[in-house]
């Protein structure tokens, strides 16, 4: 393929034009901040001084410790890789809906990245609410949103290991904090 053909192919390829979702910026920022807090690097100035001193036994040992710390951070991948995922299925209330979820365990809790599509439109003073449910039927609310066709980031204080069923309901905006039971999407999440 010559350069002109390659340029044509690239300009016609969807990945060339892809726009990341708006919330990815915050996800990236806090992933790096989490990593920096969990595994502080050796300061560059100190690293330079150590290089000038040569490969003393102390420097070799420090480098090994640093390498192990970085390796553990990469392999652990807690901030960078989803730990649970699942597909969500439509219910009778919203036969055209579908979605998926990826959940990452972070120091702050469980970050739930929900991609919900084709939800029925909301009425006045209504919103979508996401819940995690355990085997006993205990429901834990994990956030509300209003877009019927988008990606949203929610947070959970309970583990999907113990609360493996995710449901989305339509809720009236009122003083009743219990679920309305109007489920529009549901599915189980599984450890990756």
């Amino acid at each position: 393929m010559n350069d002109l053909e390659l340029l044509d192919e690239l300009l016609a390829h969807p990945s060339t034009w892809v726009e990341p979702p708006p919330d990815l910026e915050d996800v990236v920022v806090w992933a790096v901040v989490d990593a920096a807090a969990a595994a502080p690097r050796i300061a560059p100035a100190a690293a330079h001084r150590r290089r000038r001193r040569g490969a003393s036994l102390f420097a070799v040992a420090a480098a090994l410790v640093a390498a192990l710390a970085v390796g553990a951070a990469v392999l652990g991948g807690g901030a960078a890789t989803a730990d649970y995922q699942g597909n969500l299925s439509a219910t009778g209330l919203a036969p055209g809906a579908h979605g998926s979820v990826a959940i990452t365990h972070t120091a702050a809790g469980f970050r739930v990245r929900l991609d919900a599509r084709g939800l029925p439109p909301l009425g006045d003073r209504e919103l979508y609410q996401a819940w995690l449910k355990d085997a006993a039927g205990t429901l834990v609310p994990i956030g509300t949103f209003s877009s019927s066709n988008d990606r949203v980031t929610l947070w959970s204080g309970v583990s999907p290991h113990d609360f493996p069923t995710l449901t989305i309901t339509i809720e009236p905006i009122d003083n009743n904090q219990a679920s309305s039971g109007q489920r529009v999407l549901m599915g189980d999440v599984h450890r990756r």
């Binding site: 990341p20 992933a31 990593a35 951070a73 901030a79 890789t81």
Partner: peptide, 14 residues
Amino acid sequence: AEEATQQTFVRAWQ
């Protein structure tokens, strides 16, 4: 791609 983007910036910081 989003997972890769996140990991890229973490690895860049490392």
